[in-house]
Design a protein around this nucleic acid. Structure first.
Length: 481
RNA sequence: GCCCGGGUGGCCGAGCGGUUAGGCGGCGGCCUGCAGAGCCGCUUUACAGGGGUUCAAAUCCCCUCCCGGGCUCCA
């Protein structure tokens, strides 16, 4: 098995990836709070972990991947109101109606971006009892205390607090929000909050009616579905503090096992004009809007064009560059599929071609092994495309073996990067026959040197979304996207 | 204030001590009736600025400038 090297936020260095129980890998990624439409910033994070998931599988690991849905307890800092309730009020829906709407919207976005479904997608509200069992344990062990129906985690009871974010406990006395009365230390965070009588999102608990804190949810869902120690835990860089810092504290105090997570992986921001894409700044593009203009492959190639930990700036002019790249890559693959479908000379692949493809593919894999260097891996994809195009253009007809070799390499690269393979013809059988007949007629005009008519036909087809290319072996056509 | 990241050719972006990154765009060539696609070449001795270290620095060290992010809201 080839070794993956990956950056661990905890050690701030690239480490060799060694799961606790190979070949099994336990991976947890913080999912969205389903309060509104997901945007391209979310897409970046989930596409990166999708590639990690696919690549680990390619390397031979058996990955159990959990990505949660947050449907309660995530408060807005300014108003201290649950984000789900804010959304529900905005759209005049019941809280769980809103949750359903945006959860299914999120699932649909993920599917359309060709992001593989995780093994389990747990919802916070389905784990309330597990949460208060864990909270009881924390109180028993002296890591948490109750104040008037609220329960706080006592940060001073956990000596390693701050290890992930590098924030020192003593600095946390500064705060932007007025600390809740009764907290022993401003840095203490809520595990459970008391709810007033008219509050919509609340559950019974041993401490009266209330709802869970945001951080405890991920601790509980990850422990429940993956066990007390995880191999990989990830999310956006924004989650390092306080969310992930708090998760470590809670989880290690609950289980008594250390480390809670072996490798912490964080994805850099998607920015717009240098600023983070976010709901609050209003500079976001929803995944649905992006997919009106661009294909899933455009978006994936764009997002994978920079290193996952680096920031990536979104703009339409840059996206347009990736449309060109995507066409080039897809058309190369499509040509291989067409050549195979049309029948070709039987025979084994030439040693030279086969060797080149193998060495390019090896470079591709080595790039991904190097802290998931997708930009370099993309460069190998482009080299593969050039090599395959050269084969297809060569005067010697490629053999079936050559074409199968090319197809296999492209298919593997597409699979690992999560690119959708092109459809050889996306227009249906009837349209295919019509265009085929029209082009046969056009060939008559071309043979008769009636180029004006031939060009008119070609332009008319192009206007209708069908691109025609005249090649040495006759016209080719495809549906434009 | 305290902590992290960054500044690479027209544009996007790898590289992080010696080797052509790659792509987009532009220009030229091959091919073609033309176009498109593809391939080849050029644009490309680029690395914020100034000092060092070194046989050798985009890469290491120091200083300066600029940008982004975190410091209990966000993937």
């Amino acid at each position: 098995m080839r070794l993956l090297r990956i950056y661990n936020t905890l050690s701030r260095s690239v480490e060799v990836f060694e799961p606790l129980d190979p070949p099994n890998v336990k991976m947890y990624v913080c999912g969205p709070t389903v309060q509104d439409l997901a945007h391209l910033g979310h897409a970046k994070t989930y596409i990166v972990f999708d590639v990690l998931y696919r690549f680990l599988s390619f390397l031979g690991y058996r990955v159990k991947y959990v990505r949660n849905i947050t449907d309660v307890g995530h408060l807005r800092e300014d108003t201290q109101v649950d984000r789900i309730l804010v959304g529900a009020e905005r759209e005049r829906l019941a809280p769980m109606e809103l949750v359903d709407k945006y959860m299914f919207s999120f699932f649909s976005d993920m599917d359309r971006l060709n992001i593989k479904r995780p093994t389990i997608q747990p919802r916070a509200t389905m784990h309330i009892v597990d949460m208060w069992e864990a909270i009881s344990k924390l109180i028993e062990k002296g890591h948490a205390y109750v104040v008037d129906g609220n329960i706080y985690f006592d940060v001073s009871s956990y000596e390693n607090y701050g290890q992930l974010s590098g924030i020192r406990r003593e600095e946390l006395v500064k705060h932007r929000v007025e600390p809740a009365p009764g907290k022993r230390n401003p840095a203490d965070f809520a595990l459970w909050k008391r709810a007033e009588s008219g509050y919509l999102l609340k559950w019974n608990s041993p401490w009266g009616e209330g709802f869970p804190g945001w951080h405890i949810e991920c601790s509980i869902m990850s422990i429940k579905h993956l066990g007390e120690q995880l191999d990989i835990h990830g999310g956006g860089q924004d989650l390092i503090f306080p969310h992930h810092e708090n998760e470590i504290a809670q989880s290690e105090c609950i289980t008594g096992k250390r480390p809670f997570v072996r490798y912490w992986v964080h994805v850099g921001y998607l920015t717009v004009n240098g600023e983070r894409m976010s709901k609050s700044l209003g500079n976001y593009v929803s995944i649905k809007d992006a997919l009106k203009k661009y294909t899933a492959n455009d978006v994936r190639l764009f997002i994978l064009s920079s290193h996952y930990r680096a920031p990536l700036d979104y703009s339409e002019s840059v996206m347009d560059q990736f449309v060109e790249i995507r066409k080039r890559v897809e058309w190369c693959y499509a040509r291989v599929l067409e050549a195979l479908a049309e029948g070709c000379v039987e025979g084994k692949p030439s040693g030279e071609f086969s060797g080149r493809v193998d060495s390019i593919f090896e470079g591709f894999i080595a790039s991904l092994c190097d802290d998931l260097n997708t930009p370099q891996a993309s460069a190998y994809l482009m080299e593969l495309v050039r090599t395959v195009n050269t084969l297809l253009d060569s005067t010697r007809s490629p053999t079936r073996g050559d074409l199968e070799k090319a197809k296999q390499a492209l298919a593997d690269v597409f699979e690992v990067l999560g690119l959708k393979p092109p459809e050889p013809w996306g227009g249906g059988e009837r349209l295919y026959l019509v265009v085929d007949r029209v082009l046969r007629l056009r060939e008559e005009f071309r043979r008769a040197k009636e180029f004006r008519v031939a060009d008119m036909i070609r332009e008319a087809l192009e206007e209708a979304g069908i691109q025609v290319e005249d090649t040495a072996s006759g016209p080719r056509f495809r549906v434009l996207r």
